[in-house]
């Protein structure tokens, strides 16, 4: 396959690395959660890309099924639905913890919380 033929995979890698960068580098708890959500979103794209069959339609029976009909593989779509649910739970929990951190420390900057802990 050519470089452009793998277009979706390049997007996957780009989005993955952008998300991971934010997770690793940003010092703000909410920004890190955003990074984590982008990072997980990239994986959803990977799964959705791999189930695509060239010329295939959605795996839904609108008309009676004919032998030779092409349709996308539904299994990765189901898997990624599960992973999306997990991702939402993680994001919700992470943001909830960020709120609690804001209540306890009065800031959501990691450097500042560390400074406050050191002064204790």
């Amino acid at each position: 396959m050519t470089f452009l033929g793998l277009y979706n995979y390049w997007v996957f890698i780009f989005v993955l690395v952008v998300g991971l960068y934010a997770v690793l580098v940003k010092g703000n708890y909410v920004k890190r959660m955003i990074g984590l959500a982008i990072f997980q979103g990239a994986v959803f794209l990977l799964y959705i890309t791999m189930d695509k069959v060239e010329g295939g339609t959605a795996p839904v029976f609108l008309t009676p099924f004919q032998p030779g009909d092409l349709y996308a593989n539904p299994l990765p779509q189901v898997l990624i639905l599960t992973a999306i649910v997990v991702g939402i739970a993680v994001t919700a929990l992470g943001l909830a913890i960020s709120i609690r951190i804001k209540e306890e420390y009065g800031t959501i900057e990691e450097a500042e919380t560390r400074e406050i802990d050191r002064q204790e």
Binding site: R32, L36, A83, G94, I97, I101
Partner: peptide
């Protein structure tokens, strides 16, 4: 209250780890 910052670190690391595993499983699938 340090439990909160410790949890956040744990959550980030744990999620990145699980997502890496998920990518690996995706490639194998």
């Amino acid at each position: 209250r340090q439990a909160l910052t410790a949890t956040f670190k744990y959550l980030i690391t744990g999620t990145v780890g699980a997502t890496f595993y998920l990518i690996g499983v995706g490639y194998l699938y």
